[in-house]
Amino acid sequence: MRTTGWLTGGALLTILAFGSCRKDPLNNLTNDESRIYITNYDTTVNFSSYKTFSVNDSVDVIQDNQLNGRELSPYDSSLLAAIGSSLQQRGYQLVTKESSPDLAVNVARVYNTSTGIFSYGDYWDSYGSFWDPYYWGYGGYGYYPPYYAVGIYSITNGGLEIDLLDLKNAAAHNNKITTIWTGLARGEQVFNQANAASEVQALVGQSPYLKQ
């Protein structure tokens, strides 16, 4: 009788112990596999209508919804160089910002220490105002609200954001600078210098429409 009770208890405990052995997806991802790349573009835009572009000389650093200034770390330098190279390979001509480029490339490192559930659309809305129209010589211009991405995910680490701004048609759009393409990279070691080129390659690579 007592033995049977122990057997029963032991069997149930064994089931519970085995039951808790859920295969944890996060423990089965490499750093590369942990990263996601999201791009979004204005489907009404003809990207071949743009000829020139310029890349910001530094990167915005945004911490918990606050612009902490601009920096140029070794990672940032590699990233900006990779963006310039990728867009040139797509047929666009790299020019200085004083040469009235058709497109402006703005890059931001975004750090969120809070964990929450929100959409990437909200994310872009929050940070859109950090773009500096004066930097591109468009002081007083407003920004057109960017696009909404799919999905709601919990965000627990930093992310890279690359925005392609339409300077060519800013005046025609009632003095609004429109974002025509956005790229996001998130995941482990996203700000590792060794990953900068592959991140740009991934984002541009999944945007075949982005060509002159």
Binding site: N28, D42, S207
Partner: peptide
Amino acid sequence: EGTTVSAVLTNS
């Protein structure tokens, strides 16, 4: 609708 996501997908 213009959004592309590149990811390793895991279902659990």
